[in-house]
Design a protein around this nucleic acid. Structure first.
Lengths: 202, 202
DNA sequence: CCAAAAACAAACCGGCTATCCTGTTTTAAT
DNA sequence: ATTAAAACAGGATAGCCGGTTTGTTTTTGG
């Protein structure tokens, strides 16, 4: 009797794709449920892989977390917050675009899961220095870019004031996202956008 | 032979004190390490009590968490943020006092553990509706109080604008605290305070 | 063809939350 | 005063899930 061989689909090694997939799933879960509330098993299941494979790419959960910040969160901040401001006709216009654009997105999706940077910042930056530095780096890039743009718009603005102004914009964005998450509403973002406009318009 | 009785200190029932102690320790640990990263065991050890006693006062960890928000975090927000603004000579002066006062405190203590409301808001408000509502209540009280004070100062201000302005103040405070935590520096708070002053001065 | 990389599979130890049962103290009615 | 009931605290345990490790098999590049 010839044995019926179950044809298991041949495995194909694709380390880059695997790494990317794990990173994507982890970023999503960390964002939605938080770092501590997400187990590596959750990530394994989500990425349809195995514990061993994950371990091969990321030795520990912390390594994975740092990679998510450096390669995913940073990119997301860059795309949704920094780029639009750099390409807009003015800093004020860019800020308007970013705040209201994000508000629109939040209203399209039903749930407000918050700013990924902020989420991880508050959960991890006190617990671990490496996490703190990774998060701080992203905050600083954002703030510097904004400060630079503000001065490009208004050369009369001195560096220190521009820096303070950029800080206020970033802070109000973060805070508004926190309030938006708590109220499950985009309204705080729109309110802040309006007020920032009057401040920048002067 | 008479048995030597080890004199164990007689137990004294003091449910209120026990409850208070547990709540205090839990609030502190949740604030410093986060909700998920804190085990009930940690709370038990910190309060120098036992699992059974804790369970008697708070059936589950979630019950404890909700109590911390409603009875500790809310009070802290009231004392450090709302009261000073209500008693100051003007809203602008009050805001100045709060932001710089907190900044001073952060610099005295070595570590910036962030705004307790913000910390728990971002960690829990998406995970659980009860938590979200508890956090949102505190945010709203804060915002309403501020809005009311702004209008008392400037009767020309219409309600909607006052509300938006209050939102910006609360948001920038929250965000500045997040940045302060990530950078372990009070500078973001001072920067925001300065910029808010020019906005309110006009 | 072979060595190294990549992916799989299973299980480990430890700590977590929740619960149970026991014993003690307080309260209040008789 | 006495005593029954309620409130309170102690301590141990169960069951589960956490992150990580350990072998082994499969794939791939040189």
């Amino acid at each position: 009797m010839t044995q019926d061989i179950i044809e298991r689909p041949r495995r194909t090694n694709n380390p880059q794709a695997m790494r990317t997939r794990i990173l994507d799933v982890a970023a999503d879960l960390f964002q939605r449920n938080g770092y501590n509330a997400t187990s590596v098993h959750d990530v394994v299941r989500g990425a349809a892989t195995t514990g061993g494979a994950l371990h091969h790419h990321f030795a520990t959960k912390k390594t994975l977390g740092l990679a998510v910040i450096a390669e995913r969160v940073a990119k997301e901040v860059d795309e949704t917050a920094i780029q639009p401001i750099m390409t807009a006709t003015s800093a004020a216009a860019g800020i308007h675009t970013v705040f209201n654009g994000v508000a629109d997105t939040l209203e399209r999706n039903r749930a407000v899961s918050g700013c990924p940077l902020n989420n991880l910042a508050l959960e991890l930056s006190l617990a671990d220095t490496d996490f703190r530095e990774a998060v701080n780096t992203v905050f600083d890039r954002w703030r510097s870019a904004l400060s630079l743009r503000l001065r490009a718009d208004r050369p009369d603005l001195d560096a220190s004031r521009a820096h303070d102004l950029a800080t206020l914009v970033v802070a109000s964005y973060s805070g508004a996202m926190a309030m938006a998450k708590a109220s499950q509403s985009a309204e705080p973002l729109r309110a802040c956008a309006k007020q920032l406009e009057t401040l920048l318009g002067s």
